[in-house]
Design a protein around this nucleic acid. Sequence first.
DNA 1: AAGGTTCCCAACCGCACCTGC
DNA 2: CGCAGGTGCGGTTGGGAACCT
Length: 297
Amino acid sequence: MGRRPCCAKQGLNRGAWSAQEDKILTDYINTHGDGKWRDLPQRAGLKRCGKSCRLRWLNYLRPDIKIGNISIEEEDLILKLHKLLGNRYIYAHIWSLIAGRLPGRTDNEIKNYWNSKLSKRLLPAENKVQEDSTHKLQQTVGIINNLETGNNTTTTAAASSHQVIRTKAFRCTKVALPSRLLGDDHDQQYQMVDTNSTSASECPSCNSDMPCQGDQNHQNLSDFLMDFDMSELLNLSDFCQPNEIAECHNVVDAPIPARNNEANFSWCGNLGDNTDAFQPHQDLDFYALSNSFLNRE
DNA sequence: AAGGTTCCCAACCGCACCTGC
DNA sequence: CGCAGGTGCGGTTGGGAACCT
């Protein structure tokens, strides 16, 4: 038995959506919620493919979509993130990652903006940047692949140009930050910060959900937390200064690989839930572990 | 003004991952 | 563990708008 197609192509509308179709879809989702996209068109009374409905809703009809041109600040962030993430053959989901840093913007919008404007503007310089980024990332991916297979050597052979790395498997839940960045000069040199309960604009130093207006340290911390969950695969020295340690907890039986000095990248493990026992290693730039370890028995 | 070209972007498509059974 | 359905992703396409000659 083969897989059921997402929809019967016959008799369905295609191309641009009419205002009436938009209204039908919006009203239906506002009443019944989204999801179950395959059957949604029939239930809503739309002559559209389910995937088409999903795309229309996610990219244009959602209430939190930001209307208007990409600002200078947004463009700058796109450029920075694209430079950091390198080319698509190494790092998948790049557009959704970038879009995730731009509230109200969709991956499709970012992708179109890049392809139509930024890529042309930056083409010569971008080629050089991508070469550098690819090399750096290959080193890092090699470490991760070796870690996954229990091989502690630091060869980069596994990071071929066809290797696809999925970011979803590398989300970290907590980071350990220097106490001075948290406005606490007490005995503890580092404190755990839960990245899940820290919104993108929130500065934990200020304990406020308003954009931080504090000193340079506060601003740096806010930026760092925003960038952290995207950066597990990357050299975090791109984001923070040496010895500003980041660490994941709930780690179970993860091996501790040899440090790769060249990549300036390392891991720690066996912390379990005992975060009190966490002792940052002064000569390491950061600690990070993927969720694939968290599920190990 | 008319025709050709380029640009922009909404939409489609196929593929891969995730999840439940 | 394998399979199938649901979902999300990046690549690509096609049509309208804008620009050029």
